[in-house]
Simulated assay, not measured.
Amino acid sequence: MFTDRSPGRGPDPEAESLLIRAAMEQAAEGAPALPDLVPVALAQGRRRRTRARAAIGAGVTGVVALGVFGAVLPMWSSGGGTQPAQTWSAASQTTTTTVTPPPSPAATARPVPTPVHIEPTEGETSMADLPPAERIRREQFQQQAAALFDELLPRQLGPVRPVDLAVSRYQGGRNGNTFPVIFSVRPQGDPGDAPADPPCRDTPLKGLECRTAMLPGGIKARLMTAEGNSRGTQTITGVNLAFAYGDSRVRISVDGDDTSMVSAPVTAEQLLAVAEDPRFLELVAYADGRPMEEKEHTVRGG
């Protein structure tokens, strides 16, 4: 299609626009109608927006979960094991270390006290007469008990040493004084084999003071301070604590020195502190379950 232009004149824009539109209509004549793309574009936009929100929500949920569980899950070591002393938190990112507590006094190495040797009297037995295995067992028990007494009882009592005559015998000493110590866990006899304990009350005329106390586990104990031997105007005193445990009768006592007439440098309250110590009660429980003394009985006709 051509247009007639006069020489020397420029193109007519309006006429060219009409010619182009007519040409396009002629070319598209007979072709199918084009689909409406607007609804399709809107649907695709909504789907993309939904997927984007879901992805953002999943990411936030993952961060929250990491913050919650990361605070309590242990870190894994490269060797496949766990490091229970270290934890990681997404919030704080701090590392904590469990410090091992220092050993207790009972676990600290102590020098083994040399036993005191006492020759048995006529008709009396000694730990030396026991079978070797039983003698060693009792000696080890004495060593543990002596170390505990040496730690818990006053320093004025001096070093506490086991006595090789019997498992219940010990001895303290300082400045030339000797203080007998008894720690006995004796199986109780049948009813009537041993006399019942007298009522716990003070007897001033005999220098006797008695009171009761409660040990851990609801154990009722009897504490006594009593005068012992006397020489002229001098009198020495000792302390005694007794209670029942399991199938045994337990006694711990400290007496004065009869030779130098010096009273026991231990009070009833200090003896009670020993009986309240869990380590002492562990020794009592062991001796109650594995007796090392004869069953108590009453000597009749004596």
Rank of each mutant, 00 (worst) to 15 (best):
A146Q: 01
N177P: 02
V38W: 09
M1G: 09
P35T: 04
G176L: 10
A194W: 15
E25Q: 11
V40E: 10
T267E: 03
Q234M: 12
R49E: 14
T82P: 05
A107L: 14
Q171S: 08
Q86W: 13
A213T: 15
L215A: 08
D129I: 03
R51S: 11
R21C: 12
F243L: 01
A90F: 01
R161A: 02
G302M: 13
G173V: 05
R46H: 11
V254N: 00
G232Q: 03
A15F: 08
L152W: 05
G62F: 14
G59P: 02
L205K: 10
V160A: 03
V99Q: 08
Q156T: 10
T125N: 10
R155N: 11
D164N: 13
F69H: 14
A194Y: 15
G289R: 14
A128P: 10
R51Y: 12
T259K: 06
T267A: 13
Y245L: 13
S230F: 03
R47K: 04
P195Q: 14
A133T: 13
V181F: 12
D257N: 09
G246A: 04
V63E: 01
R231S: 13
T114E: 05
G228N: 06
L66P: 07
E269G: 08
A90R: 04
R135I: 03
P102I: 07
K206V: 06
R231T: 09
A106F: 02
G57V: 09
N177W: 12
R137M: 05
F2C: 01
P105V: 10
R155C: 05
D277A: 08
I252Q: 00
V254T: 00
L241H: 00
A226N: 13
R51H: 11
A109V: 10
A65R: 04
V68Q: 02
R201T: 06
P180K: 00
L73A: 00
V266Q: 01
R49V: 03
M127H: 01
G8T: 06
T125G: 14
Q140H: 13
P265Q: 06
P35D: 05
G189H: 02
P7R: 01
L157A: 12
T97W: 05
L241K: 08
A107Q: 14
R138Q: 14
P35H: 13
S253Q: 07
T235Y: 03
M214E: 13
Q140L: 14
S77M: 15
L208Q: 08
G232I: 13
G246W: 02
S230V: 00
L148F: 03
P278I: 00
V299N: 11
E282Q: 14
L283K: 08
F141K: 02
G8Y: 02
M75V: 15
D190G: 01
A146S: 15
S6H: 06
E14F: 07
G30P: 06
